[in-house]
Design a protein around this nucleic acid. Structure first.
Lengths: 196, 196
DNA sequence: TTTTGTTGATTGACCCGTCAATAAAAAATA
DNA sequence: TATTTTTTATTGACGGGTCAATCAACAAAA
């Protein structure tokens, strides 16, 4: 069976397996064997490629963040006005790829784990800061700086909150509803200040 | 040492110890020994009173919820207008007792655990529904039902989101800022619709 | 003497991480 | 080209550690 060039394939498979395992279990309480099993390899191989469990989890979080970044960049590129930029940021967070039970469960679990792992905490800070600045990139074109800052903070909090509520499978049944809630806030907040 | 009538005292001590242990660790990954040690008893006694770990955790969550309910009831009683009711609900969620690192960490951890435990999930649903109806008890006096419903949903999401962000110790440094953000949303949303 | 409170010791399960061993491909050598 | 050697891929088995839960035993009240 041993073919050459397996490493990237196995890494990818293991990361995917980690996401799906976490998604199903609903927490980071998944064993290396469980993950390796889903990826179709032995647990020893998972250790071989990632060293320790922490690093596999970290790599998984990095992967999720990287995907989000790519989606975000794409969405922002096709946004013309500041107002559209804001909507684009919101939309990406609730896009099909991001707003899935598996991914959400992973997010939530990582949030908790971040209290233990400083490396994870740093990663999540990067995400939080990036979300904020992405929102600001649109909002500063509509509101004065201080107000834009508060609006960004509030929007970000709402997004996180909707994620949590989705994880509980209570209320907020779909992405459309979530987007509508955030957009409703933005609309009343921004009023008719944005032209066209 | 054995005196009579210890049971309620020990139960309380164990629940308090559970909260503080979870708060410090930042997750439910605390051992029975750790909890029992903090309460000044052996782990065997914790099992004696609560049976299994799950039940201790459940009892702890119930306790936190009960405290929140009491605080909420008190706050709502001294609220005159519908607008004040809304603010009261918000204020309680960020009150000194509720908005503490320990309690927040516990909340977050329980949210995650809820994906595994249906009993915990039921408890958190009760909380979510109660928060919603408490918000509605004020909002329906100001907005038409459908709009009130959406505003309540958005407010609840924002509160949850601010909790999460607080857990990360990133942004949202204190309760006052959190309250200001939510109130700002409410003010723009409700506008001048509420008289006086 | 029965009830209530309490614990040390132990068991049994689980799981991370390691290691020696195997096997196929690739590279080096003859 | 035929061979040996090295590199890459892979796993089963196991050691060591942790932890939930049990139990027998003991002590103080009722």
């Amino acid at each position: 069976m041993p073919k050459v060039g397996m490493e990237p394939l196995r890494r990818k498979a293991l990361i995917d397996a980690t996401i799906s395992a976490i998604g199903e279990r609903g927490s980071l309480d998944v064993t290396m064997s469980e993950i390796a099993g889903r990826a179709g390899v032995s647990s020893a191989l998972a250790h071989h490629y990632f060293g320790a469990k922490d690093e596999l989890l970290l790599a998984t979080m990095r992967h999720i963040l990287a995907e989000l970044t790519i989606d975000m960049r794409r969405a922002l590129q096709s946004a013309a006005s500041p107002r559209e930029r804001v909507s684009a940021v919101v939309a990406v967070n609730f896009s099909d790829i991001q707003f899935q039970p598996e991914t959400i469960a992973a997010w939530l679990a990582f949030y908790v784990e971040a209290q233990k792992s400083s490396a994870l905490r740093r990663l999540l800070r990067v995400y939080a800061r990036r979300l904020h600045s992405n929102l600001m990139s649109g909002l500063t074109g509509i509101l004065p700086r201080a107000e834009a800052d508060r609006a960004a903070e509030a929007t970000a909090a709402m997004i996180d909150g909707l994620y949590i509520r989705r994880a509980l499978k209570d209320g907020v049944p779909d992405a459309a509803t979530a987007i509508a809630l955030v957009e409703d806030y933005l609309e009343t907040k921004l009023g008719e200040r944005h032209k066209q």
